[in-house]
Design a protein around this nucleic acid. Sequence first.
RNA 1: GCCUCCUUCGUCUAGCCCGGUCCAGGACACCUCGUUUUCACUGAGGUAACUGGGGUUCGAAUCCCCAAGGGGGCGCCA
Length: 454
Amino acid sequence: MSQVRVRFAPSPTGFFHIGSARTALFNGLYARHTGGKFILRIEDTDKERNSDAFLKVIFDSMRWLGMDWDEGPEVGGDYGPYFQSQRTGLYKAKLQELAAKGRAYEKDGAWWLRLEGARTAAYDEHLKKDYEKVDAAPMVLHDLVRGQVARVEDRDFVIFRSNGEPVFHFVNVVDDIEMRITHVIRGEDHLSNTSKHLELFKAFGVEPPKYAHIPLILKTDGPGKMSKRDKGALIEEYQQRRYLPSAVRNYLCLLGWTPADGKEVLPIEEIIRQFEISAVHQSNARFDERKMSHVNAQTLRNLPAAEFAALARPILLESKVIDASVSDARLAEILGIVQEKVVSLEHLPEFMGFFFTADFKPDEGAKANLTKKGGDPVARVRELLPVLEAAAWNEPALEAAFAAVGAAHERKPTDYFAPVRFAVSGQGGGAHLLGVLRVLGRDTTLARLKSFAA
RNA sequence: GCCUCCUUCGUCUAGCCCGGUCCAGGACACCUCGUUUUCACUGAGGUAACUGGGGUUCGAAUCCCCAAGGGGGCGCCA
């Protein structure tokens, strides 16, 4: 079989929707899996609804997600131009081709595709109007995901508007032919359009590509598919919230497809290796922000330390937690104990800000919890202070100090943990406490404890 | 109204094609417990599902039919 050629064909009419991202992703995965080509084509035939700003959103989002295209805008290719607005001549020529065959005709200023079959008058309950029903043969689709799906297209449809512009169904098919597309992977919302497309391929006398209609992403709760107004529906939201693009991509793969080996958090190379269209699910999936967040956290913790640091530094700079004077070595030391606990880059500044300033904002909830377990927190810190002052500043010694003070006052060593954490960080949770004290350093730790106990 | 797709824990799903190994496995979330480390960590447990009804069969989550529910489409939008 010849080389696989798939395309993602968005219309720059809005934001980059999570469903679009996944469609693009599945196309890209299939291209990479098979060693084929991934083509980006911009469907901007409707001038009323297009904008250059939206175009940039598509490019930025796709690149952010690591979905680079082999042919298309900004990269070129042998089958361009890749903007449908620049292919008008081609569409007109193809329309003439159908007209010459007697398969297209003009009516009310628009051009229509003429279906083959006997005609009768009928009434459409939905549109509340009469129409000419065509007794056409069913179009049988052998969908790679859904199997055989037959549907009858029973009336002629518009392929060129009266304003001279071609409609979606027409350009979509013409370009798939001209661009030598071998597989069309798209959302299930296009399933019932496919009979129109198959009629067009038939009219052109061209063998249609293989189709794969993938399930849709539904709202977390409530009826219907994700709409752009739903929380979490737009890729830019994840960029703003510091999600790792690889984690977003990973989660999106899990919506509609399952890795054969059952591992859910896995690198893109492994996803590409395992990805099969035949394994794509048939049923729609509900979007789950919490699971996505979990995938993000897992991915974050699995990052090599250097990579984590490279991501963390600009975020900490931007939030003014650190300035440029903080050395890589110092940052690495802190990040070393933070990475295993933090769940998102978004929360990194508040999670580790106390390492750089004593002027942190105490967590009121944590403060309220202090007295619950260990009694009076100030008393605990006072008991502990002299022992810590005498201790060597490494984790085993610090652990021994907590144990000693606990034994001396007939308390559990852990009764001292929460007060100490709160005193040095203002928080109720966070990185491993002994590590925090070690990295914070003897002087800073003791100073904050004294200040707390004063 | 018509066309079409889908239907396993709250959610994402494995199993279904090739019926018995499934009183249905995993993950997220939730709950409980654990550690001389509190915790946004980690470990161990737990609650929780084959939409319903017929049929085929010795035997059905798995095959067939019907119903119900959900999704999508029905535009000179894409």
